[in-house]
Write a protein that binds this DNA or RNA. Structure first.
Lengths: 335, 335
DNA sequence: CTGAAAGCGCTTACAG
DNA sequence: CTGAAAGCGCTTACAG
């Protein structure tokens, strides 16, 4: 195996010459496609195993119109708390891709500039794409759909024709609310951020669904959405001190702000106010008190999205919408 | 620009035919290489601008032996606190790559299994690599060097022949210690983790250098290295309560544990014990008290590493070792 | 300045 | 079962 450097890289023709067969035969032996005698195949396979032949990926791509690359589109992440999600998701995708002889090409793209995605597709550098964040009216998703590129979204998108994989955010939040009610907690407030991202919309929907299921009326005076900065969260917490028994936070970021604001104001958790988060991450482990939350398997989310994309690329039928399971983790903060 | 889907993708020959020129001419117009009349060039350029021609990347790669891809090798990250570094670094690399018409191919690899890297190189899917974590005796780095692949490491590696870009960890830690001494803080303890990663070794070296510079003797009874879990950090903190004035933490992870342990034991910071961290991240913003630390520009670290790799790929001379600047951020925890 | 031709390293009908 | 040939879509000496 001691091929010292790239100078000695061999081609399929070198192998063919050495073995006294044709290049076609070598190609067949390697790919397993086409008829070939088993003795010949073994001879070729043994030779390349011993001498370390690696096919030129560009030549293969050109000949087969397949790159064995997929693009992973990541958003520009500002908040620290968002990183673990995309990071972990990407790791899941990468793991599944590797297992299927695919590589991932990572591109950061936000907003409405489709140029980076377009370039990747039109230059045929990738066979498909995974969008790791979805928006209410998803520009990228519509773009890819129109271009008829194989792609899947991690996260829900408002279009029945788009292949999507998501955590069951609605179901999870609904169950969390239901559980809280069953513990005798009545005035459950909701604190959420911007509604452009579908994940936030889903969580809010789940919250509403929990109320509906239990036959309770939603009280709009304890619902805060579109909280986009710390000051807004603080104000909301202030106002809720008297009006709510529990604050259900859309995510770790908001939960973090809530916990800190309650601490600053000397409000005891869970004694005077209970707290729960619609999304668990290890950020939540940094408090003196453990936080009730929903736990999703993000790594698996990435794996599944990748597998579905690869299936779709190879022409298999894939489920249009896949929802992954969750766990309700009850901790001290809602005791 | 309304090319609906991929069916209509055109080749250089389509363009040539439409314009009544040869494919070579079209190629020259696009690449800017070779002699070509400016009138012809403009005609071609205008046509492809209007009709949206995108060259097939695989064909280009095959013809030019250049993929316009680089690989970014990420470690398997277990700890939440490590994510921001690699994530941000990757974003910096991606930004610079995009700006130079390169794409990044992300591969997760840890330990000593060079197979994933080898495959990428021998199949010629990338033109070069960036290792984002380095080890004392770096297996991957030695492997790539032996294979004569263009690559750069983010982080220091113990081999003068390897192109590396790093934060000036030694200089930064040395300065931090010097500053602490100048504030009258004498018994500065050091808490560090495993010494296999060079970053940890550098920080420790900087700590020692700070003592040396000030002419003080290092006291080995207040130095703890190879702290690999929470229990070990807790024990160290316990022991240091009486012996030290300040705990200098190798990174955010250790700092986090230290802060929490001190809180649990009711030790006031900075009143009874001062604390500083050799690495800032927003994790450190989650405490009631702000933490003195060193701040590095990780995004820029990524950008620079990428630029140097690209220069190296295109045959330019590159600095063998680049050290980036830092800031000492003095906060409440060492008041 | 421009074109015809060969070549990059594979794959895959088409014959045999 | 195996090989010769054409083709994938570019680039680039080589002529002119």
């Amino acid at each position: 195996m001691g091929n010292g450097n790239l100078d000695k890289i061999m081609t399929i023709h070198d192998v063919a010459r050495e073995l006294g067969v044709s290049a076609s035969t070598v190609s067949r032996a390697i790919s397993g496609k086409g008829r070939i005698g088993s003795a010949t195949r073994d001879r070729v396979l043994q030779y390349i195993d011993e001498h370390g032949f690696y096919p030129n990926a560009s030549a293969q791509s050109l000949a087969q119109s397949r790159t064995n690359n997929i693009a992973v589109v990541l958003p520009e992440v500002k908040a620290l708390v968002d990183m673990p999600f995309f990071h972990t998701c990407m790791y899941g995708i990468e793991e599944m891709a590797q297992a299927n002889d695919y590589d991932i090409l990572v591109v950061i793209a936000d907003g409405r500039d489709t140029k980076p995605l377009e370039r990747l597709i039109l230059n045929r550098k990738v066979d498909g794409m995974i969008l790791t964040r979805t928006y209410e009216d998803d520009f990228f998703a519509h773009f890819l759909k129109e271009k008829q590129i194989p792609f899947v979204t991690v996260g829900t998108v408002n279009d029945k024709g788009i292949t999507q994989v998501d955590n069951d955010n609605i179901g999870a939040c609904k169950e969390l609310v239901t559980v809280l009610f069953s513990k005798g907690i009545e005035r459950i407030a909701y604190l959420g951020g911007g509604m452009e991202q579908t994940v936030n919309r889903c969580r809010y929907e789940g919250y509403l669904a929990g109320f509906k299921k239990s036959g309770r009326a939603v009280r709009s005076d304890i619902i805060y959405t579109n909280l986009n900065n710390r000051a807004m969260v603080e104000k909301a917490v202030d106002e809720l001190k008297e009006k709510a028994d529990c604050i259900l936070c859309q995510d770790d970021y908001i939960c973090n702000e809530v916990i800190r604001q309650l601490a600053r104001e000397g409000v005891q958790v869970p004694g005077q106010m209970k707290v729960a988060s619609c999304h668990y991450s290890r950020v939540l482990e940094n408090y003196p008190i453990t936080i009730t939350s929903l736990k999703f398997d993000i790594m698996d989310l990435g794996r599944r999205a990748c597998k579905i994309l690869l299936d779709s690329i190879s022409g298999k039928d894939v489920p249009i919408r896949t929802l992954l399971d969750y766990e309700v983790i009850l901790k001290e903060s809602t005791k």
